[in-house]
Amino acid sequence: MRHLIDINDLSIEEIDRLIAVADDIIADPQKYAEVCHGKKLATLFFEPSTRTRLSFEAAMMELGGNVLGFSSADSSSSAKGESVSDTIRVVSYYADVIAMRHPKEGAPRVASAVSDVPVINAGDGGHNHPTQTLTDLLTIHREKGRLSDMTVGLCGDLMFGRTVHSLISAMSRYENVKFILISPPELRVPDYITQTVLKRRGCEYEVAESLDSSMEKLDILYMTRIQRERFFNEADYLRLKDTYILDTDKMALGKPDLSVMHPLPRVNEIDTAVDADPRAAYFRQAKYGKYIRMALILMLLGKEI
């Protein structure tokens, strides 16, 4: 039984294959319109989400499959105290594949241990969000035509930002990718990421506090939101939330072929005036999320086209 819990569950070859399938879906969506006819995706969202849940559901619908599930823990039996394992055991009798978001870190790993069908981690607290990473990789591939030989700037909350950790982990496996890690000192990338990923894989990286001085070096700028829900202390959140705001002045410092990404939702870390800049790739990124999830569902259901 194949699951996707952590982006490192996939080899580079598998990621490249998923990206190739996503490219093909974009080129010829009609070819895939009935591939999952009769199959059901359960979206089990114990925590609210807009993009991830809807993109999973849209992905399955565009493959000709059906969708069932819930969008908050309040509307599931977990509100009555049911364990993750029990919920998943039951749902795996009703669906062919499960996409699951849970506020507790490691919940999808627990689910995968008892499920009779593939489990996809659609985000577990501040821990992993592998389909966002796949979305990010497809976006970089679509924007740049490659996943190697570039400088990637990651800006904002690099400590609690799960998308950042997964993206570093995934991109560090490609050749000649340099990282510039831009954050306030309190929100730097955790040591285990620098120790177990960047240093071990011999990646060049730079720790910075200024977005302005980093702009000219970047091929990709990955902005993140400083997330209120990850802080135990409201005062810390309020002090740090406006540290970086990308506006048109800062964009003027960037390369002409820079691509700006953001996992969304944004609050105010990207000024809406930047949206009109063709280098703003974050809405295209959200669109690619559906295609890569289609490719992933196909892979986990063993559908070769």
Binding site: R109, V110, D124, G126, Y192, Q195, T196
Partner: peptide, 23 residues
Amino acid sequence: KNPRCITTTEPQIPQIFYLSGED
């Protein structure tokens, strides 16, 4: 000991730790 970990709210889950290849 991570308060965000699933094991803190579901005590029946076995506590499994792996040796991470660090320094």
